[in-house]
Each structure stands twice: as structure tokens, then as C-alpha cells.
Write a protein that binds this DNA or RNA. Sequence first.
DNA 1: AACGGCGGCAACCGCAAAAGG
DNA 2: ACCTTTTGCGGTTGCCGCCGT
Length: 219
Amino acid sequence: MGRSPCCEKGHTNKGAWTRQEDERLIAYIRVHGEGCWGSLPKAAGLLRCGKSCRLRWINYLRPDVKRGNFTDEEDQLIIKLHSLLGNKWSIIATRLPGRTDNEIKNHWNTHIKRKLLSRGIDPLTHGPIHAQAAIHSIELDRVSSTAVLREDVREKHQELNLELQISLPSTHLDSPPTLQKIDRQVICFYCSLGLRNSKDCTCEGTSCRSIKACQSLST
DNA sequence: AACGGCGGCAACCGCAAAAGG
DNA sequence: ACCTTTTGCGGTTGCCGCCGT
């Protein structure tokens, strides 16, 4: 619990990563795979904390990270997923192959929010901007920064036709053993939100037989 | 050319959950 | 069951480049 101790140790670099640091990190992960972030910096000869290494790898160095502008289709998908999930960037990111949670979060805050506001849409509630909506959004925000399943989820879910079954992104299939150990399982939208016992769960008795898989994929 | 404002993005921070002993 | 360590997430910060004055 509490703050990660690795960041409190001295003698670590901060700020922008240098090319040499990137190359060291890439070379190390190529050989040893992802994971063990706590011991990685020392093993790789990096003066960074493990968290910093992890972030750099996931958000920038990973070979499957898609660079460049977001397409309109991606924007629309982000907006729709955000209307369902709220600020669950990591879950949203699983639906956009090659995009990271950090990238999506930045894109939301810098582009999409403004876009919605200019259209008169409240980015919190995804409804029209007016006083009541504002109050409602504050209330929603307060009650739940986690993904509360709203009344209209079912309706939106159908409208979206997003194949809202969380499966391992194809880009992760090349990932290190920790991920490869998990069979490619498809779970329903409700399980993906951690609502494993929901009456609406549709994966009982089908492919979602592993509770552990549900839990690990929904977090 | 110099300056300040602004937007975009990489990186950091603090927290909580998960994992392990 | 409890404590410590590790991992992952979301919010926030700060740097850097662009643009207007």
C-alpha cells in the first residue's frame, strides 16, 4: 500500500528520456520481456525508477504503439466509450488498438472536450449543456469516478454495436509470458466492467468460465 | 528579434488494488 | 490475517514549440 518506494530512492533521473535511455530500455525488454519493473532499472543499467520505465515503455517505446493523429472514427469511438465508462481510460484504450490510456486521456482533454463543448455537448454527461445537466454531472462525478452502470447502458450498448466483449487486444498476443498464459477469452460487457454477478451477464456458461480471467481483464 | 500566451504532450505524483511473503 | 512490495490507474504538472503581437 501507499506510495511506491522506488520513486523515493535518490539517484534517479527525472524529466525527458534520452535516446540512450530509450535504447537501453528497449534492449533490455527485448531480451527479458516486460515485468519486474522494480528491479528492471538496475538490471538494465538505468537511473530511473521502475514506474518511469514502465510508463516510458507502455506509452512510447512499445512497438505496437500507434503514433499520429486520431481519426474521426477513433474520436467517435472514444466519445461513445466515454459516455458509457467515464474516465476509465485504460478500459477505453483496450478498444483502440495501438493507443495508450495516456494518449487517449491527453487527446480527450485537449481535443475532444473542446469539440464537444463547441457543439453544446457537456463532456461529462454527454448531454446538452444547461444548468440541470451541470448539476447532474457534478453529482455523477461525485458519486462515481468509477464506472457506474447507468440505466441507459443497455440501450447505448445496443446502439453502439461495439462488440463490447473485452478480449485481449491482438496487439498483446505477442506480449511476454505473463499475458500469454491467459487464454484468449471473450467476456461480456458487464463482466468487463467488473460486474461479474450482474443479472445481465451474458457470458455465464460460455467462454467466461474463468473468474480470474474476468477479474484480470476487467481491471 | 523579443516576448508572452497558449496548446499539446510526455512525464510525474499520489493513491489504491493486487500480489506475495 | 496481516504487512510489505509491486503494479496500474487517473489526475496533474511542466516543458517545448508555435503563433500572434
